[in-house]
Amino acid sequence: MTAQHNNFTTIPHSPSIDKVGVEERVARFQTRSIKGPSKMQGLSMVLSMIDLTTLEGKDTPNKVRQMCYKAQHLHDFQEGLPTVAAVCVYPSMVSVAREALKDSTIKIASVSTAFPSGQAPFEVKKMDTQFAIDAGADEIDMVISRGKFLAGEHAFVFDEIAAIKEICGAKRLKVILETGELATLDQVRRASDIAIHAGADFIKTSTGKIQPAATMQVTYTMLMAIRDHFDRTGKMVGMKPAGGISTSKLALHNLVMVNEILGEAWLSNEWFRFGASSLANDVLMQYMKQVTGKYQSADYFTID
């Protein structure tokens, strides 16, 4: 694992980010033309990249079971649809999801480290993670300690991520930066570099609890960090924008961005995910519009 070879002092200098320039660049991705076969392929990719998510205080085993069923049966009236990539739940719901998904290829992602605030003792965060893995989680979505990060204790943040990665072992670790709390794109970039060098397999924008979440500007900044890391080391890191991506159009714009910054190697759910709860149905609606030529009522798409 990279974490063992890296330490905080080896993280390269993070370049400064000019927000106005980023906004202009991002606007350009939104002018590419995605329609016809290109749109079908894009929508299908989006579906296959979704981490179908429920992260609520009121989550129950039944709610999770229903969502797991939906994950495997997005829209059975249409053949050839992919399943989502994963379901994303709280650690307490991992065993329920494991049972519901049985031997499906859909992964189970569990949030951990006292999601969403991360305001818990380090020992608790480690236990939280170990608990999720023991319950059958395939992937761990941890949060960084934003308070420590903003207080300038970057080494603390690095060590925490590295320690959690050690617990994860071969299980993939997504590191949530909660960019809505980091305030500037310079901070987003620095946090991305720290997470990547501490051993993150994926970097993820947000918990979904704080606005703004996965804006294209933020995702762009994180993709550039992944790009630079790849150019420097040849190692791929995945990206997961989460929170606020609820329309097909925005999802496709995100894919264009990935395609142009990182290239087609990242255009699979092994390297790119959307964290979303309501995106799937909008994509399905657009997909069926492409198939039938007509928009169907939202009532024809199930909510679970």
Binding site: I34, K35, K39, G42, M45, L267, E270
Partner: peptide, 14 residues
């Protein structure tokens, strides 16, 4: 999980 070919072409839009 990885597609061997992820090539994604934009639609010509004249």
């Amino acid at each position: 999980m990885t597609d061997s070919n992820n090539k994604w072409e934009y639609a010509p839009s004249l």
